[in-house]
Amino acid sequence: MSTEATSTESFTDSHVLDPAATTLSQDAISAEITDIHAAYRQSVVDGAKAETQPRIDFAPYRSSLLRHPTKNLHHADPETIELHSPAFGERDVHALEADLTIQHNGEPIGERIVVAGRVLDGDGRPVAGQLVEIWQANAAGRYIHKRDQHPAPIDPNFTGVGRAITGPNGEYSFTTIKPAPYPWKNHHNAWRPAHIHFSLFGTDFTQRMITQMYFPGDPLFSLDPIYQAITDADARARLVATYDHSITSHEWATGYNWDIVLTGSNRTWMEDEEGDH
């Protein structure tokens, strides 16, 4: 796999598959995923705690092989700067940046959707006034990125980048176009389920996260080693938005709801502890 990181990449023909990758079939990748998931389920039966995050060591996602630490994460008691987060506000983000369909002169092509929800911390408290950033492919499965050479059309009216600052109840809402699945080079005939990338901040910087939101019922879920790197079925389901007719608007856009839960704030309970003494 080191060849992937070291090979010189040609932007003009990079849609030509890596010959090493093409030798791997979907069946081979799927079999690896099935084995890891079976071992995980057995470990839960044997008393292990349910996992909530993806494995960072997950071989079916071939790019991860040389990019995951081999040592366990080292426990740190958070202190000072780790108990706070950078501040963002109206100075940083204009309200119109949450509408990805009005960034050019014309209407983008595709299915107009609204994705709305709340950002909460692990105690259920809303994360208010924080930055949410999204990026995504267009309705044909193409990113505006020089490294994306998937031969699907670029939409001159769609960039696929949005930002928002959460409201007082942690709420956010983006208007965009439903992205399409797209091929990638993990193995032969590999396709990513349609997704929107989300970048999130909490009240402590230890809550910082980047993830991907998926759409309900995607037939590619079971085949995708990035999504399946989350071994726990309940945890995987937390990345799938829900169709929500109350977000759908008359003759305008269909609506999806997706709430995001960050890890727990350490500042609040540590302050509470100090207050007790």
Binding site: P54, N72, G124, H145, T159, I210
Partner: peptide, 30 residues
């Protein structure tokens, strides 16, 4: 490997949303 520490940290009320890779195409966005 992990140190016993902060065992008094209260459990989460909600299960956290899983992370995912940033992928290759953040360059025009972040």
């Amino acid at each position: 490997m992990t140190q016993a520490s902060n065992t008094q940290a209260p459990a989460l009320k909600l299960a956290p949303t899983p992370g995912q890779t940033i992928g290759p195409f953040y360059g025009y966005a972040l």
